[in-house]
Simulated scan of single mutants.
Amino acid sequence: MSDGIEVEQIIETKPKKLPMATSIDKDSIREVYEDVRSDFTDTEWAVFKFDGSQIVCTAKGQGFDEFKGQFTDNERAFGYIRIQMGDEMSKRRKFLFLTWIGPEVGVIQRAKMSTDKAIIKDVLSNFAVEIQAGNDTELDIELFRDALNRAGGANYGTGVRDLL
C-alpha cells in the first residue's frame, strides 16, 4: 500500500470434501438377498451399487447375460448370483458374491471397496465363492462355474463313460 502499511494477504481455502461413510438399508438389501436365495422365486441375481454414499439394489433378474450387462467401466458394484450346479444325478444351487471395480474407477474409490464390501457382506453372508472382477472378460459364467466346482469339493458323474 502507498501509506507504508503492510497488508497480509488472506487466502481463503475451502475444506477438502471427504468421502462420506457408506451406509446400507439392511432390511431392503436382506429382502432382495432372500429373494435370490429362495427356491420359490425366479430371481437368479441381484446387483448393488452406490447411490451417493448408500449401497442400494439397482437391479435383479434372470439370465447371466442380463447380470453381466449391469457392470460398467466407471463404477463399482456388488453382485449376488445363484447358479445351478451339479450333474445329471444331482442338481444343486450355489451362490457367488461378486465385487466389481471397473477399470476407470479412481484410486480413492478403489481403496474404499474393502470397507464397503464388509458392510454389504454383513447382509449377503451366505455364498460358496467370492470373486473380484474388473473387466468384461472376468464376467464369464464358465469362470464362475469353475470357481464354484473347485470350492465344492468332489464332483461325481453317473459313472458311465462314453466308449469309443
Rank of each mutant, 00 (worst) to 15 (best):
G152A: 12
I131G: 01
E104K: 15
Q84G: 09
E44W: 04
D116P: 08
D136N: 07
K112V: 10
R161L: 13
E34N: 15
V56W: 02
Q9I: 12
Y80L: 02
E75I: 08
G152H: 02
V107D: 11
M1C: 14
P15V: 08
K94Y: 00
D146K: 15
T99S: 07
T158H: 06
N74C: 08
P103Y: 03
A111F: 10
F71S: 04
I24P: 02
Y156S: 05
P19A: 01
G69M: 02
I119D: 01
Y156A: 10
P15G: 11
D136L: 03
G4N: 15
M1Q: 10
V36L: 06
K117P: 03
T41P: 05
G159A: 05
G4L: 15
R76L: 06
D140N: 15
E12Q: 10
I141D: 05
E142N: 13
M20K: 14
E88P: 01
K121T: 07
A154E: 06
E142Y: 07
M89D: 13
E8Y: 06
S38R: 08
K26T: 09
T72S: 14
D140V: 09
E142Q: 13
K91L: 12
D51T: 05
D87G: 14
R150T: 09
K14R: 14
D140Y: 03
F50E: 01
Q109F: 11
V129T: 04
I24D: 04
N155E: 14
D122Y: 07
L124V: 12
G52Y: 04
I101L: 04
T158L: 13
T58R: 08
W45R: 06
Q70D: 03
A128S: 15
T115G: 14
F78S: 01
E8D: 13
G69L: 04
A151K: 09
D140K: 10
G134S: 14
K112H: 11
T158N: 13
N149W: 00
G106K: 10
R110H: 03
G102A: 00
D146N: 14
R110S: 12
S2N: 11
G4M: 15
C57A: 11
L96W: 04
Q109S: 14
M20R: 11
F48Y: 07
R161K: 12
I108Q: 15
C57N: 09
G102R: 03
Q132Y: 04
